[in-house]
Design a protein around this nucleic acid. Structure first.
Lengths: 204, 204
DNA sequence: GTCTATACGCTGATAGAC
DNA sequence: GTCTATCAGCGTATAGAC
C-alpha cells in the first residue's frame, strides 16, 4: 500500500483510475459479480498492481461507497425550510432527476446494494439517512399543516420522489429499450413536474 | 435428469423446492452472487442431487425467469379498453402494489437483472414487453385524446406506475428501516391512489 | 513501483458407489 | 434417486524477483 506521507502524482492518478473503473464494474455487476481482474483491466493495471493500491476488493468498494454517500444526499439536505414549499419540492425532484441522468452508475451501485438487502449499508440507512429523513419528513408535515401543500404521507412522498427519479438510472436499459429513439430525459422533467404540481398544489 | 415420461411425486416436490429456494437465493444475491450450494441447502438437498434435477445453475435461473415473466405482465394486460379509464388505471396501480407486497422476491429478481443491464432479458424486453407497452400506451393516449384523463406522456405514466409500486418490494429494506414500526403497505395504497387521482382526473 | 509466479479456497459440475 | 468423492477452473490475495 502507498505510504501515508506523500502520494505521488502517479499514485493519485492510479487510485483515481481504479475507483473510476470500480464504479463502472461494481455498478454493472454488483459486488459479488465483479472481479478484481475486471476492475484492474478497466483501470489499465495488472491485478497485483491494483492490490498494491488497495488491500482488497472490499476496500475499493467501501471507499467508493463512502464517496458516494457523501454527495448522494446533498439534494435532500438542500431542501430549504425557508423556501417556498412547492417550489422547493419541485426543485428537489429536478435535482434528483439530473443526478440520475448525470450519475447513473452511482445510482445503480446504490440500487444493487439495496435490492440485495443492503448487507454493507445497514448502518448508514439506519443512521445518517434515517435522521435526515425524519428531519425532512417533519418539514414536509409542517408545510402540509400550514396549508402550503396538500396533505400526503411525508415519507411516502419522499419515497415516491426517490423511486421516480432513480428509476431512470436504475432501469435505464428497460426505459431506453421501450422508448426507442426518444431520449427518456427529454420528457421526464416535465412529466414529474406536472405530477407533483398536481399532487401538491393546495385545493386541487 | 429425470425421465421425460413420468414425473414422480418426489420429483415434482423436489423440483418445486429447488425453484422456491432458487427464487429466494437469486432474488437476494443476483445470479452471479448465488451459488448452487446455497440453493441446494435452502432446498434441503445436496449439491449433486440438485444437479440431478437441473443440468446447471443457469437452467434453474432460466426456468425461474420463464415462470416469472409469464405472470409478471398480467396486470398490465388486464388494463381494459372497455373499462372506465381512471378506475382502470387506479385498479392497475393497486394490483401492481399488491404484487410488490405478495411477491417481493419476484420483483427483486427482475430488478436485479435490469439494474445489471438485463444481460439475460434483452429479447423479452425488446419483444413481448415492448409490444405490450406500445399497445397500452396507445390505449392511454386514446383516453387522453377523449378527455377521459389528463394528458401526460403515456410511457412515462407507465414507468411511473412500475417505479412507484415496485419500489416497495425492491427497496424494501430501506423503506422498512426508515418507516420503523409502521408497515409501508398500510399507507401506500392510499398515497398512490391520491397521487394518480390528482394527476389524472380531468380539469385538475 | 511494477511485474511473474503462485498459494489456496470456493464454485460448478461429474463419476461412481450404494 | 441420492450420496461421497473428486476434478478443473476461477477468484482473491501474497511472495518475491526485478
Amino acid at each position: 500500500m502507498p505510504k501515508d506521507r506523500s502520494p505521488t502524482r502517479i499514485q493519485k492518478k492510479n487510485r483515481a483510475a481504479i475507483l473510476e473503473a470500480a464504479l463502472d464494474v461494481f455498478s454493472t455487476h454488483g459486488f459479488r459479480g465483479s472481479t478484481v481482474d475486471q476492475i484492474a483491466k478497466a483501470a489499465g493495471l495488472s491485478k497485483p498492481n491494483l492490490l498494491y493500491y488497495f488491500p482488497s476488493k472490499e476496500a475499493i468498494f467501501n471507499e467508493l461507497m463512502a464517496e458516494l454517500l457523501g454527495t448522494w444526499l446533498d439534494p435532500l439536505r438542500a431542501l430549504d425550510p425557508e423556501g417556498e414549499p412547492l417550489e422547493e419540492i419541485l426543485a428537489y425532484v429536478q435535482r434528483k432527476l439530473q443526478m440520475s441522468r448525470d450519475f447513473p452508475r452511482e445510482s445503480r451501485l446504490y440500487a444493487n446494494e439495496i435490492v440485495q438487502g443492503a448487507p454493507r449499508l445497514h448502518e448508514v440507512i439506519a443512521g445518517d439517512l434515517s435522521d435526515l429523513v425524519e428531519e425532512k419528513a417533519q418539514l414536509l408535515q409542517s408545510w402540509m399543516d400550514a396549508g402550503k401543500i396538500n396533505r400526503a404521507h411525508p415519507k411516502h412522498l419522499l419515497f415516491s420522489i426517490w423511486s421516480l427519479t432513480q428509476h431512470y438510472a436504475d432501469f435505464d436499459v428497460q426505459v431506453r429499450t421501450l422508448m426507442g429513439e426518444e431520449d427518456p430525459f427529454d420528457a421526464a422533467p416535465e412529466y414529474l413536474e406536472t405530477l407533483y404540481r398536481r399532487m401538491l398544489t393546495p385545493k386541487g
